[in-house]
Design a protein around this nucleic acid. Structure first.
Lengths: 185, 185
DNA sequence: CTTATAAAAGGACAATTGTCCCAACTAAAA
DNA sequence: TTTTAGTTGGGACAATTGTCCTTTTATAAG
């Protein structure tokens, strides 16, 4: 549910020392929006600490949460490769510390630091490998089965996240979430 | 619906000439299974021509189709980065020609050919950027809206694919697909 | 030509999930 | 303190989707 990548963060911390002018440490408070959908950015972020949610908003105002991102997760990097606009919103759901790096410097690291290059490949591959089974399971199983699965990996998920966020993560309505949680007691 | 990556294929064709011992051209007939879920492989593939489906099977025998893959799409590459078992099945749904390359030679190209490296990055990023909105839309909208959307990008999708495949792509039952197609006439 | 087997289509009913409400509670703002 | 907005919880009903079954047609195999 909360994605992390400690190996990547560890290497970023090394790079921060090595390239003092590449990274800027920023801090955001709960509920602050860090990236907006359909905008053009020139930097991307790596999470040092805290949790964000990555979600897509549609024209009807519905949000769908892709991932909760924790330490070592990067976001905004896809736009470096695609050249397109950002396709999701990123919002802090706790106090968050981030390393910010420009597309330019990121590209330079990719080209000149093979360790970094490999770690980024891994992080992209991991995002795909995570999304595929999740999509499959969410689509094929009932709400009840999905919640049972959530509970197994995050026994107290309903304490960390708001009900609305959990519903948006599962792609269901708040009403359905409540009903199912009731049936499970 | 059918993912393609002509740029990648074009460069692969160049590499095929350059590294004569790296790539093996293989051919598969409709319905042949090329990769199986949860197995350990030492090679991966790039599609030269034809279409495959990439799907996850669950313990109840349900299949969920992740993507239909056309020319220039690679599969089996995630295992190079993760070191894990394959997590989906790949099956030909037309006659298919593939370039097969070992993990070892693939890694060597990644390390020594920066053009190739960049193209692989792009292909990984594109997979993520495709999956995210699809998951979001499928989860948040009705079957009817999903089928209308399909029809827009693939007006004759019901001629190319079997009804069962379309249902498995949308994560719905065959019955629901038929019913909705009827209502739409 | 027969016989399996798979694909397509849809009826009838049950289960799941969403929509539209209203009410209680909390926390922050005036 | 009062007010406002956000979060939680759930009743009642409607709409959507799935399950189970049967029939027909097409396709491949013997």
């Amino acid at each position: 549910m909360i994605r992390i990548n400690p190996n990547f963060l560890a290497y970023i911390e090394i790079l921060v020392q090595k390239h003092l002018d590449y990274f800027i440490l920023e801090e955001y408070a709960t509920r602050e929006v860090i990236l907006k959908q359909n905008k053009h950015y020139h930097s991307l972020y790596i999470i040092k600490s805290g949790i964000t949610k990555c979600y897509l908003s549609d024209e009807n105002g519905k949000d769908f949460i892709q991932e909760f991102l924790g330490e070592g997760m990067e976001f905004g990097e896809l736009e470096v490769f695609s050249g397109n606009l950002s396709f999701c919103n990123i919002e802090a759901i706790s106090n968050v510390k981030l390393y910010k790096i420009s597309h330019k410097n990121y590209t330079s690291l990719l080209e000149n630091d093979s360790v970094f290059n490999k770690l980024v490949m891994k992080s992209l591959a991991a995002k795909i490998a995570y999304k595929a089974p999740r999509h499959s399971f969410q689509q094929s199983y009932s709400i009840e089965e999905n919640i049972i699965k959530l509970k197994k990996s995050y026994p107290n998920f309903d304490k960390i996240f708001s009900k609305k966020d959990i519903a948006n993560y599962l792609g269901i309505t708040l009403r359905s979430l409540n009903r199912t949680l009731n049936n499970l007691n």
